[in-house]
Amino acid sequence: MTSHSSHSPQFFLTAPSACPYLEGQWERKVFTHLVGDKADELNDLLTQGGFRRSQNIAYRPACETCRACVSVRILAGEFEPTKSMKRVVKRNADLVAREHAAEPSSEQYSLFRAYLDARHRTGGMSDMSVLDYAMMVEDTHVDTRIVEYRVKTPDSIATGRNDGPLVAVALSDVMGDGMSMVYSFFDPDIADRSLGTYMILDHIQRTRQRGLAHVYLGYWVKGSPKMDYKTRFQPQEHLMADGWRRPA
């Protein structure tokens, strides 16, 4: 048996499977486990190298014939919202966001289930149970946070609490150079609020408040309509063969 240092992660390669973004393409991923007292440090390093986290796994595409997936990060300090983004912020001025440790709740799962049923009924997460959801949130060895977005109630200001309806949730990692938005979901019945956009704008602000530089959005796939929204947040950098670069 070959021995391995606890400081040297082992990497594995998945078998080919149908690409969820580009028809006719096949995807493979390289992955490793994020566990132990060095998980935060490793997560920082791998995220900067184009990996994403799912529970205690860090992965990135390793497709044999395609390089369409491009890691994207927003330059939070230089970001300026567009007019339409300012309207989104104004439209959601009645929301209160509360950030806390990564702990699941039945209320979160109900919202998550409604979101999946409306937006991703045939996706890979469509059959996730409440236990699966709990694992998605809790199974982390890094600094992971939950941000809950609720509608203000009349006594929100007076009591300092907000127990209004939960309308959106973001699961995010806090890293040495920024925040990585792992997964987010929202009430599909109020799509006119543009809550997906609002959560990204809120994370840009949270990243600035922490004195950090980047908001990591995961992968952008040119030609995939479901990914187009990511390029609206400028300026941003894309991970290329020679490192992080602003797109031409």
Rank of each mutant, 00 (worst) to 15 (best):
T14I: 06
A18E: 14
L22Q: 07
Q25S: 13
W26T: 15
E27M: 09
D40A: 14
E41R: 15
D44H: 11
L46D: 03
T47R: 08
Q55E: 14
Y59A: 05
A68I: 02
R73A: 07
A76Q: 08
T82A: 12
T82E: 12
T82M: 11
R87C: 03
D94A: 10
D94K: 04
D94E: 11
A97K: 09
A102K: 01
F112G: 02
A114K: 11
A118P: 05
R119H: 10
R121A: 14
T122D: 14
G123Q: 04
M125F: 04
M125E: 06
V130S: 15
V130R: 14
L131P: 02
M135W: 10
M136R: 11
D143N: 12
I146S: 01
I146R: 07
R150P: 07
V151Q: 11
P154L: 06
P154R: 02
D155R: 11
S156R: 06
S156Q: 07
T159G: 00
G160L: 06
R161K: 13
D163I: 01
A168Y: 00
V169N: 01
D173Y: 02
V174A: 12
P188A: 06
D189C: 08
I200E: 00
H203E: 11
T207A: 09
G211K: 09
A213D: 15
H214D: 05
Y219K: 00
P235E: 00
W244H: 00
P247A: 08
P247K: 08
